[in-house]
């Protein structure tokens, strides 16, 4: 199996803060990590390789420091890595990103046909879940989103069966290869690479592709220029016109405060009163709890 996994390096969201004064994102010192959703894609790909043979290539489109994310993927056990980086790629939205990634995967396919492409469900910075479907459409791959389990792979027959999380249940799907899978979170656990893997990853050569080596045909489709969407405004949330009404609370007499609160709520927000009324009647019936 020749498997490609698309990963993205993202700022570790738990460390991002908004500057209280300028209302801008403070990026300084925020560590970059592999998009956590992509780890499930990496592990799924590695498991298929381990049972069916072949190789796993990780690719990312991003600035040169994104190589760190690729190296990390190699340390997990991926075999090869390609960094797709070029100044003209910057400012890309999902449409432009999927164009670049699709071109690169097609280029890899010329070396050896690609059987499977994996992406994460979504990124934690873009959060769109669009890049995977975008790549599939551009390469005319069968698309399997929100896959929760790889049920069977039959390379000779060129077939794959997966379980897919649908809105009201789980679909069991069968399709042909090549296909693109976006992997659902929580479906596996990324492995802990061995010490030799760490050495190999640290010393590995990471192929770096620019627009030419990535096989980009139409430069108008990449970066800012190739992106139909633009951000027109970034802003902080607006407070409600009125600030919350403060209910004085004295720890010595806690219920005085909560009684006063209930009285206020009942007087001011009839809908709550109505809802409570229902529960008065239903009292004892009990709601559905675990």
């Amino acid at each position: 199996m020749n498997i490609v996994v698309c990963i993205k390096q993202v700022p570790d969201s738990t460390h991002i803060r908004v500057h209280p004064v300028t209302n801008t994102i403070m990026r300084q010192g925020v560590p970059a990590v592999i998009n956590p959703y992509d780890l499930f894609a990496i592990e799924a790909a590695l498991q298929i390789r381990d049972t069916h043979g072949g190789k796993v290539t990780v690719i990312t489109m991003g600035p040169p420091p994104a190589a760190v994310a690729l190296r990390k993927a190699l340390a997990y056990g991926c075999d090869e890595a390609v960094l797709i980086t070029d100044k003209i790629f910057s400012g890309a939205d999902t449409l432009a990103t999927s164009y670049v990634l699709a071109s690169a995967i097609a280029t890899l396919g010329k070396e050896q046909p690609v059987d499977l492409v994996f992406t994460g469900k979504q990124t934690i910075d873009g959060d769109t879940a669009q890049v995977g479907p975008g790549i599939a459409k551009r390469l005319n791959l069968e698309l399997l989103t929100y896959v929760s389990k790889i049920v069977a792979v039959n390379r000779e027959a060129g077939k794959i069966q997966v379980e897919r999380r649908a809105e009201g249940g789980v679909q069991l799907l069968e399709t042909r290869l090549p296909a693109l899978i976006t992997m659902l979170e929580g479906t596996n656990e990324i492995r802990f690479g061995s010490a030799p893997d760490m050495f190999r990853a640290a010393r590995a050569e990471i192929r770096t592709w620019d627009r030419e080596s990535a096989g980009i045909e139409d430069l108008k489709k990449v970066g800012l220029k190739g992106s139909p969407t633009v951000v027109s405004r970034v802003f902080g949330p607006t407070p409600r016109a009125e600030k919350a009404q403060q209910i004085a609370f004295d720890p010595a007499a806690p219920q005085a405060a909560t009684d006063a609160l209930l009285e206020k709520v009942l007087a001011e927000i009839p809908k709550v009163g109505k809802e409570l009324e229902r529960h008065k009647v239903e009292a004892g019936a009990g709601a559905n709890h675990e």
Partner: peptide, 16 residues
Amino acid sequence: PTFGGSLLCTIVTLNY
């Protein structure tokens, strides 16, 4: 909402 921060962003689709 955008990023992990406490921000919102407004996005428009130009020319498409």
